[in-house]
Amino acid sequence: MWRWAIDRPLRQVVTGIGLFLLLLTAPFGGWAKAPATATGPERFAVGKPMTLGPLELTVDRASWNTDPSNTFGPSKVGAYLLVIGHLRNSSNAMVPVGVMKDHLRLTGLTNVLASMDVTDPKENPVPPDKADYTLYNAPDTTVLSSVAPGLTYEVAYVFEVKGTTLPDRVTVDTFGYTWRKSSLDQTEMWLDRTPVGTVTVPLHEGVKHSHAPTSTP
């Protein structure tokens, strides 16, 4: 038997091994389509925390205004849309928001800009899932570029929109990540972006900022 197998031409040997391996997969379903293990994004109620890898995000409300803050000036093309919530880092190291830049995405809007201040009409508007936010720590409107472990920040995801025609509710999708070694360069990072949840919040016209002189806290 051994002698016979050895004496087969190479092509037959390779084909034989391939068929044998294929046969081995039979108990696991063979060619059958693998069932989807991901259950898809879950619908979250307003105020319910979502786990996005190391971050826990609770979306509380949304508002829009042409000039909502002292930190950035009035919109030149329309208004700012603010998705307001609480963000907590439940891991044990600082999480730079930039590595999970797309953990929150708008849906359904047709007048969103690529990001704040990218107002070039040639590049705008973009599909809502391509629009980047700028993340602010709401109480003192400083840019929140990293989230410190164990702290809960009151945050605003700020988008810019063209015009002031906005619906009375907005839906956002959220995405989670896994901390693992990249198979390309073996460095550990947050990878495997997967949909986690979707939440719909009422959208109101918010208050215009007071233009009061900035006071040091």
Partner: peptide
Amino acid sequence: TTGDTYDSLLGRN
């Protein structure tokens, strides 16, 4: 003491 780290180069630090 719980092993959490706060890097002075990151975020608002």
